[in-house]
Computed example of a mutant assay.
Amino acid sequence: MIKLLGGLSVYFKYQPIRTDNAVFRLHNVFTTVLLLTCSMIITATQYVGNPIQCIVSGLPVNVVNTFCWITSTFTMPDAFAREVGKEVAHPGVGNEYDGSQEKKYYTYYQWVCFVLFFQAIMCYTPKFLWDAFEGGLLKTIVMGLNIGVCHQDEKEKKKDVLIEYLIRHKRTHKLYAFRYWGCELLCLVNIVLQLWMMDAFFNGEFFSYGTRVLGYSEVPQEERYDPMIYIFPRITKCTFHKFGASGSIQTHDSLCILPLNIVNEKTYIFLWFWYIILAVVLALLVIYRLVIIFVPSVRPRLLHARSRTLAMETAVLVSHRSDIGDWWLLYMLARNIDPLIYRELICELAKRTGEKEGARA
């Protein structure tokens, strides 16, 4: 198992220069690894057992197993409310004498590993786009100033180069900022879209899955059935038809055990809670970005909060002289430069921009 999942550790490799925030990484890195892990575990049948085992007499077991796996199995919804051992053999599995009972077919289990892999790709897409848009700009202009221990002459030279860049390219970073915030918005859209896709994948059962599991213990015993078993049944039925010796059609009714659904039910209950939490956090993050964009007075406070060594007066001065794109770049620099060097950098930047504005006046 360690060898199987060891390759995913590359996603958690330490990055000395960070161009995003923790929520962005929760969506793009943690959720991607989570989905890939679930997909690989479900695919690795040696760890979870054979995906289906059917009980049938008079037929080769492997033939029935293959047939029921590639077609579908079913339960009877009204049989979930009956008493197991007396009225039905297993939850959702009852006798079918006249064939008139409503059936609930299950075909999703063939596609779970592929759907999880596709979801992982969808979660990684915003990071892929942002890395392409960012193009290593922060790493280039930081120039190793994230490490505070360096020669004074080297530090001064790098500071001068960075300040010259910020002055020369003033008011040219709006697209840089809005591309990043657009990728954060894409994360929220992706999570909402995936919730809708999973609900459609499970025939409208996923949205209420978590709440039904939470409310399971509060339901009266005589009306109770496990919602996880209803969506991910462990025992189902499968009907196999073949021709008899005289050419007549023979019907074989078999019970099928789906051990893979033990993994599926735990996987999707965790994903339900994780996606709901992530959707709420991303929605709050988008609102926070809107406040930054439309309420300029909060920007100096945020800059000061990011770098406590920076005086509030300097943060106000620099923020007022910068547009939204330049401010965002300064904010990201505060996350990637040594605090003492950053304070010196911003003070010098405020001084030089003040001198330029005074010379123009």
Rank of each mutant, 00 (worst) to 15 (best):
M40C: 01
L310W: 00
A81C: 04
S297M: 07
L310T: 01
Y108E: 05
G244W: 02
I249Q: 13
D20W: 00
I293H: 01
V112P: 03
K266S: 08
N146G: 15
G99P: 06
N336L: 02
G99F: 02
E87V: 04
T236I: 05
G215E: 13
K237P: 00
I235M: 14
H151E: 15
L137E: 11
Y176V: 04
E223Q: 15
K356S: 07
Y11N: 06
T239V: 13
I229N: 14
E355D: 10
D20T: 15
E348D: 12
I231Q: 05
G244D: 09
T309C: 06
Y105S: 11
L59C: 03
E348V: 01
L278Y: 02
T32M: 01
D153Q: 14
T309N: 10
H27Q: 12
E164M: 05
C68V: 04
F178Q: 12
P16D: 05
Q46W: 09
G204C: 00
Q53N: 14
A89R: 12
K3T: 09
G247M: 08
I249S: 05
K170H: 13
H27M: 11
A334N: 09
A89F: 05
E313N: 10
L330F: 04
V189A: 14
E184K: 15
M122A: 15
E218Y: 05
L345F: 04
R289H: 10
E348S: 12
E83S: 10
A89S: 14
N336S: 08
E265G: 02
T140A: 13
T73C: 10
M76R: 06
G358L: 12
Q53S: 12
